[in-house]
Nucleic acid binder design. Structure first.
Length: 268
DNA sequence: GTCCAGGCTCTTT
DNA sequence: AAAGAGCATGGA
């Protein structure tokens, strides 16, 4: 599979904080998603080998024209123009809902390195073994059933700290009938309400899950980084951020958030 | 040693 | 409704 697109930069996507299973390898990355491990690299274009091109095409949101969205933001204000130009190769990945719920419960008040490490342990211990790449064993993200027998201590042993209980309760909810794959049919507010019922899921984590796991690209997750960006760029009070973000970025709020997040991490 | 990380829950005003 | 304490863990 070969991708040639001005709005597709592998390093930017891997480093945008939405996915935690891009492992730097040689000149590119080992990427695990869609129950498959691929070696993906970028020189002239982005390329990797797979038997399921349409699945990956969907994963990378290739049917969407990011130029239209980028141009819209570029003409909106000078700060957005900077941010979009800086991270023009960013896209929103369509990731697995269960994986996103677990990942972003772990992410709360945590740092990216530790999040990555906990997820890697989780996959190695409880996920299916997939294909190898250059002799490296790769493991799928576990399905919910593969975590049914874990104790709170088993979760704690992944290095997730006090979030162990939230993960344990998530699995209990699933055993009791909660099915995150059925939530795709809900509208935005219904989906958010369903996610907020989970322990360890608040406003910000719910927005991330909706954006990266359910492709609800109008939501705008507000975290510590984005707070700094918005306050500086738009001279806002902290309590005004939420309303501003919901109105100002229109139906592409989630994509704007990714541009600003990526830009802010390097330029603040 | 102290502070902080893609916040949330629970308690107190 | 709003504000504050506490929270596991590892790295800076």
């Amino acid at each position: 599979m070969i991708i040639n697109n001005e709005h597709f930069n592998l390093h930017q996507i891997a480093d945008s904080g939405q996915a935690f299973r891009f492992y730097p390898h040689k000149e590119g990355y080992i990427l695990i998603a869609n129950h498959e491990a691929v070696y993906i690299r970028e020189d002239e274009g982005v390329s990797f080998k797979t038997e399921q091109a349409s699945v990956w095409s969907n994963y990378f949101d290739l049917d969407k024209d990011y130029k239209i969205i980028a141009d819209y933001f570029i003409q909106k204000d000078a700060y957005l123009k900077e941010a979009v130009t800086f991270g023009r190769g960013i896209r929103i990945l369509k990731q697995d809902p269960f994986e996103m719920i677990v990942t972003f419960i772990i992410s709360a008040n945590n740092n990216i390195k530790r999040i990555t490490s906990a997820i890697e342990k989780l996959c190695q211990r409880y996920g299916d073994e997939l294909n190898t790449i250059d002799g490296i064993k790769c493991y799928d993200f576990p399905r919910p059933e593969q975590l049914y027998d874990l104790s709170i201590e088993d979760f704690r042993d992944l290095g997730v700290g006090y979030r162990d209980r939230y993960l344990f309760l998530l699995i209990e909810d699933i055993k009791a009938g909660f099915d995150c794959y059925k939530l795709v049919s809900l509208n935005d507010s219904e989906l958010k309400a369903a996610l907020l019922r989970l322990k360890g899921v608040g406003e910000k984590v719910a927005n991330c899950i909706m954006l990266f796991g359910y492709y609800r690209i109008d939501g705008f997750p507000i975290d510590t980084w984005i707070k700094k960006v918005l306050i500086q760029a738009y001279d806002l009070e902290e309590k005004a951020l939420k309303e501003f973000a919901e109105n100002y970025f229109s139906k592409y709020g989630g994509i704007a958030q990714q541009y600003l997040f990526y830009y802010g991490r390097y330029n603040l």
